[in-house]
Design a protein around this nucleic acid. Structure first.
Length: 159
DNA sequence: ATAGTGATTGTTGGA
DNA sequence: TCCAACAATCACTAT
């Protein structure tokens, strides 16, 4: 039944280029700017619910890659080495290989949205409501391996 | 001693 | 629409 349910995926070829304004153009140093967090955070309020950005598929792959890389190169002590090697390999991987990583990344995003929801709710609700250590709610997530990834659309459309 | 840096790409959110 | 900053990691280095 994918004849009718073909909403996203194809038909976005035109915007594809538009969506990709930068291929590998150096916009500048993406280095993280000053981080007045820790030192300042100590004084300011702590945001235990502050959801950090979900790791992209690349990071998911990188995490595993790091282990392998370090395992074969225990002498390498440069994060840049793993990053470069990982990035190179990542580009070498096919969409099919990245699929599982992307799937995981997709899930991470789902959780991120959920965390954000709670984070927003908290902020909107009240600054303090007595949850500083009063986390006693059985909100155990069911980590079932039930992924509904059955939307394998076309993957051959890569010029 | 603390925290910032270096390098990778992707994702997300803001302007 | 587009850009910019940040996500992990780990040893080193600067103040």
């Amino acid at each position: 039944m994918k004849t009718g349910g073909r909403s996203k995926g194809a038909a976005r070829k035109d915007t594809k280029e538009a969506l990709k304004p930068v291929d590998d153009r150096k916009i500048g140093k993406r280095k993280v700017a000053a981080k007045p967090s820790k030192a300042k955070a100590v004084k300011g309020k702590k945001d235990p619910n502050k959801p950090k950005r979900p790791p992209s598929a690349f990071f998911v792959f990188l995490e595993e890659f790091r282990k392998t890389f370090k395992k074969e190169n225990p002498n390498v002590k440069a994060v840049s080495a793993v990053g470069k090697a990982g990035g190179e390999k990542w580009k070498s991987m096919s969409a099919a290989e990245k699929a599982p990583y992307e799937a995981k990344a997709a899930k991470k995003k789902s959780e991120y949205e959920k965390l954000m929801n709670a984070y927003n709710k908290k902020q909107e609700s009240s600054a303090e409501q007595g949850e500083e250590g009063s986390e006693r709610s059985g909100s155990e997530v069911h980590d079932d391996e039930e992924e509904s990834e059955h939307d394998e659309d076309d993957e051959d459309d890569e010029e």
